[in-house]
């Protein structure tokens, strides 16, 4: 199995890392605006706008029962590139 390089991964894979993870700064002398969670959320909310709409379109075709089973999971199109039996890799939001 060859990994999907970050440049071909989906935007969600990137957002999960760049917005939600990374070193957290703790120092008196330093004012870190990243300590304010709202900022990350703002950017994600802006970007999530596209994804939610995409997801909405996809969700309509879904089996009701399957959807009920998935309640509580986070909505994300991140799983749009499944590799199985050399099937073509599909990425929703390449960058």
């Amino acid at each position: 199995m060859e990994p999907i390089r970050p440049c071909h991964a989906t935007l969600v894979d990137l957002l999960d890392r760049v917005l939600d993870k990374g070193l957290v700064i703790q120092a008196d002398l330093i004012i870190s605006v990243a300590g304010v969670p709202l900022i990350g959320v703002n950017i994600r909310a802006v970007l999530a706008g596209i994804e939610t709409m995409l997801e909405y379109g996809l969700m309509r075709d879904w089996d009701e029962g399957m959807r009920a089973g998935e309640l509580g999971y986070r909505v994300s199109p991140g799983a749009s590139r499944i590799i199985k039996n050399n099937a073509p890799v599909v990425a929703l939001s390449k960058y």
Partner: peptide, 26 residues
Amino acid sequence: PLSFNTIISRDSKSNAEQNIQDWLKQ
């Protein structure tokens, strides 16, 4: 890596660059 939007400010005593150096040292 730092999280997106980590910005180091100046304060009353030092500018931002000094604050970064102090942080690295500390």
